[in-house]
Amino acid sequence: MIDNFLLLFDYPVLSADLALNGLLIGAVFVLAAFGMALVWGVLNIINIVQGEFVMLGGFVALMAAEAGLPVLLGIPIAALALFILGWGLYRLVIFRVIDRDLFVSVLATFGLSIVLQQLSNELFGADVRTLEAGLGTLLLFDGAVALAQIKVLAFFLALGLGLLLWLFLKYSRLGQAIRATAQNPRAASILGIDTDRVYAATYALNAALCGAAGALVVMAWAIHPYIGLPYTVRSFLIVIVAGIGNIGAVVAAGLGLGAFENVAGFIFGTEYQIALVFLLMVLVLVWRNLRLQRKRMYLK
């Protein structure tokens, strides 16, 4: 551990390499976390299927490429396919658990995630799959920092989609309806908003974001039917830390998480990576709690 720490001093540019690679890893988490925040905020559902949407997005991109389409086109295709799937799942399952206890929705989406895992295993096989986008590597600082361009693309896509999402929620008709429903579903429906449609659109939008993330995962890393859980856990964690109503905070928390993971994995050894991520989450929550308490005392 100390060796690793010293190594950072011997090769200062390593820290840039680690942090930048980490930011890019975080970008994919950000995409999945956008969706989770949205669904949590609007439908009041903790969506455990998140990681499976990512996984399915990867398989859709893979199938699109195998059908002879340009590899990068797989990203919008995966988003579209998952949008449709998300809509279908809403009509089939999710609408039944919206007004129920949070625990019921966790259970229902957990069940869905198992079903989707097994179905993909049946359909696509259990093998690890990858897809080459053929983009090459971006070299910085005389080649001391090497970033896979597909990850750089993921990074800008995450930022771009974040901005679009923000604009959409703020200015579009549906976006305003989504926000209104999130604030007060009863009032929204009295004022003529078809809340059921809003819910369906929100859930489908979430699935689409995850689908895009999944397409990037298969191009930059690897997927298999059981790869979902880490993405569910990460997006949950990001939303816990960032809160559900703040897109900027989701971006910051997601990218920060990626960078922290990578640097911590380097220094303490990859086996402690996940443990450190959770430790960080606990610390953030404790710190936030303390701050809130202090505020309340101040108000008294």
């Binding site: 390499d17 680690l18 690679n21 790869i227 880490p230 994995g265 380097f266 990859t270 990576q273």
Partner: peptide
């Protein structure tokens, strides 16, 4: 870790 999907921390070393 079995759930890890990225090796860049190790490969940086």
């Amino acid at each position: 870790p079995p759930e890890l999907n990225d090796m860049s921390a190790t490969l940086a070393k």
